[in-house]
Simulated scan of single mutants.
Amino acid sequence: MKLSSQQTFSALQVHWQYRYCHGGALRKSSRGRGVRPLSSKDPLHLVFKVNKSAVKRGLRHPRTFALINMLLKKYSFKFFVRVEQASVQNDHIHLLVRAHRRTSLQSFFRVLAGQFAQVLTDTFSRKGEGPKVWKYRPFSRVIRGYKPYLVVRDYIQLNELEVLGRPYSKSRLRGLTQEQMRELWI
């Protein structure tokens, strides 16, 4: 009797719109359950979303903000990841990063998320107590091309300015003129 060859399972068919995205709220559906796309040539937009019940004072509290910046600097240096832009909001963090190796990117945001959660919740003295720090797995999107890169870069800058006091508008980047876009970077 001849044994059948082992079946191979093809990857989930991902809609073309989400082929460079992974994690975040996409994990609730099959759209974000494939392999995390990472690129050593293209920049990566990362979003870490915090569970508000775990972080009472928000991420912009001076102690928490200093902790995030210290961990970003330490682990970007350790894993050879260049953080081009960062914006810390009250409940999420935007990062625009580049790295030369896929493994260094994976290690960077695995260790960054883990160390932040451990230090913030004081896991060393209280083992596994309290709510989870992260609401979702980190959202990542590979930025392919110069125009999408500019859009993400301006989006992160606009987020940072809104935290610092710029009024929020629904149209956000779509309604800005060229002069207003230049004002983002002044």
Rank of each mutant, 00 (worst) to 15 (best):
Y75I: 00
K73M: 05
G145W: 03
R137A: 13
L176I: 01
V111F: 00
H92D: 07
L173Q: 05
K28I: 00
Q180E: 15
G23R: 02
T121D: 03
P148A: 05
V97D: 08
E162K: 13
L12F: 09
R126L: 10
W185E: 07
R33H: 04
T123S: 15
L112D: 01
T123N: 08
R102Q: 12
R110Y: 08
N51V: 01
E129P: 04
I143D: 03
L26E: 04
V152C: 10
R126D: 13
Q178T: 12
S4T: 09
Q178Y: 10
R144Q: 14
E84P: 05
G114C: 01
R182N: 04
M1N: 11
S125R: 15
A86T: 10
F116A: 02
N69W: 06
R57A: 15
V133H: 03
F124Q: 13
A66P: 02
K56M: 13
L96T: 09
V151E: 12
F108N: 00
V47N: 09
V14F: 03
F9E: 09
F48L: 14
S39E: 01
V35M: 09
S39K: 06
L38H: 01
Q106S: 15
L164H: 10
E179R: 12
K41L: 13
L3P: 06
L3A: 11
A117V: 00
V88R: 03
L72M: 11
S10F: 13
S171P: 03
P138A: 11
V133A: 02
W185D: 08
Q7K: 12
V35P: 07
R60S: 10
T8S: 08
C21N: 14
A54H: 06
L164F: 10
I68D: 05
P62F: 02
M1F: 08
F109I: 00
S104Y: 09
T123V: 06
Y75R: 03
K78H: 11
W16I: 09
K52D: 05
Q89D: 12
H15Y: 08
F116D: 00
G58T: 10
S40K: 09
H92K: 10
W16R: 13
L105P: 06
W134H: 02
T8M: 06
R31I: 04
R31V: 08
L105M: 07
F139T: 03
K2H: 12
N51A: 04
L164Q: 14
M1T: 10
P148T: 03
V151A: 13
S169W: 01
P148G: 01
A86N: 12
V83F: 10
L158P: 07
K74R: 14
Q13F: 12
S104A: 08
M70R: 15
P148W: 00
D42W: 05
R172S: 06
V83I: 15
Q106M: 13
G165L: 07
D122P: 00
A11W: 06
L12D: 05
G34I: 02
H100N: 14
V81W: 03
S29R: 07
F108D: 01
R174Y: 07
V151D: 11
F65P: 01
S104V: 00
F65H: 15
S30V: 07
Y136F: 15
G24T: 05
S104F: 06
W185S: 06
F9L: 14
W185F: 11
R137W: 04
R101H: 14
A113H: 01
P62G: 02
V35G: 04
P138G: 04
H45P: 07
S10T: 09
K127G: 02
A54E: 10
G175Q: 08
R141H: 14
R144M: 12
S40A: 12
V133K: 06
